[in-house]
């Protein structure tokens, strides 16, 4: 049901755009919605981050995955149990770029004779990494539409991505990888009963949406071609604030663009904000130095204390008469 609703929503968005982009409403798809969606994306994300930043994190609560800094003869695991800010930074870099904690993913299975066995489970990590890196390369390659002149690094990316020079226009490896990875991630969700049980519409919808974006892009590049000169006019128009929505760019292009707008507008209100959340995760981005430094909760109320020294001072005579051993004297 959750799957069906998500699928229907994405398919409806595709048909809506396919039909309406051919009408007088084209400027809506080529101009108004992109600006609105982008503003929602940027302001929405900033708002989410500020809201998170308002929650105090008074203590150091990193999850530790290795030997903490201790006596000199115990090897300290710097990246898995960072002690300084720099080490925590190193840990974050590996987390953000290579999903290091997901690499540790395990799976629990019951053997035939009923024993519980834990094993390494790298597929989620591999598919997740393949998807995210492909997405990054694709988005960077798309800069060729938004930048004039096209900078050298975009052309290098295109050359490397199209290394095998299959077909005209050349097949990009990232296109294959992203579709394959998303297919895997979807199948994993529906085929593993446990994962399916915890999956929400909020998991399926972005998956279908991104798949829809990738597939309309692939269709446009390899099968139902469009006039890229017109596409460049649209993209450059948007970033120079002289927007246009020429008919020559084609309905498929406006559909692709509409799905991207839906993604951008949906982004700040969905699980996709993990892109910002990972940087604000106190279980990742803090150094584990609780034993070396005292972290005082800043909003602790003023507590009236009565230390032993003060106590001994107050009852000094009584205690002495009763024959108690005293610290002072």
């Amino acid at each position: 049901m959750k799957i069906l609703v998500s699928l229907v929503l994405v398919v409806a968005a595709v048909f809506l755009a396919l039909v309406l982009a051919g009408t007088g409403l084209r400027p809506l798809f080529g101009v108004a919605l992109p600006y609105l969606a982008f503003a929602t994306f940027l302001i929405g994300l900033a708002w989410r981050v500020v809201r998170w930043a308002r929650s105090p994190v008074p203590f150091r609560i990193p999850t530790t995955c290795g030997q903490q800094k201790s006596l000199a003869f115990l090897p300290h695991s710097r990246l898995d149990n960072p002690f300084t800010g720099r080490q925590a930074f190193g840990r974050m870099v590996l987390e953000v770029l290579f999903f290091r904690s997901l690499f540790r993913n395990t799976t629990a299975t019951l053997t035939r004779d009923g024993r519980l066995v834990y094993g390494s489970e790298k597929w989620l990590w591999a598919a997740g990494l393949a998807f995210h890196w492909s997405l990054l390369v694709i988005v960077l390659r798309h800069l060729r539409f938004f930048l004039e002149p096209v900078p050298g690094f975009v052309e290098v990316l295109q050359d490397v991505d199209g290394f095998f020079q299959v077909w005209v226009p050349v097949l990009y490896l990232t296109d294959l990888v992203i579709v394959a990875a998303m297919t895997f991630l979807f199948l994993r969700r529906v085929l593993l009963p446990q994962v399916r049980y915890i999956s929400l519409a909020n998991d399926y919808f972005p998956l279908f949406l991104l798949l829809g974006i990738a597939l309309t892009g692939v269709l446009m590049r390899y099968f139902f071609k469009t006039d890229l000169a017109a596409v460049k006019d649209v993209a450059l128009g948007l970033v120079t604030f002289r927007p246009t929505a020429p008919e020559a760019a084609g309905s498929l292009f406006y559909t692709h663009l509409f799905l991207v707008c839906v993604l951008l507008a949906y982004f700040p209100f969905s699980k996709l904000v993990h892109v910002a959340g990972v940087f604000l995760s106190p279980t990742r981005n803090l150094a584990n130095n609780n034993r070396a430094e005292r972290h005082v909760n800043p909003w602790n109320p003023e507590v009236k204390t009565h230390s032993y020294q003060e106590y001994e001072e107050e009852f000094h005579d009584l205690m002495k008469n009763a024959g108690y051993p005293l610290e002072r004297e």
Partner: peptide, 29 residues
């Protein structure tokens, strides 16, 4: 807001990156 300096810097860097085409077009483009 806690760690306001770092948070604002992070948001600024992100906003700068995603609007980079605008600045590129306005300057070197």
């Amino acid at each position: 807001m806690h760690d306001a300096g770092k948070v604002v810097a992070g948001i600024a860097v992100f906003a700068g990156l995603v609007t980079a085409p605008i600045w590129y077009q306005a300057s070197v483009g």
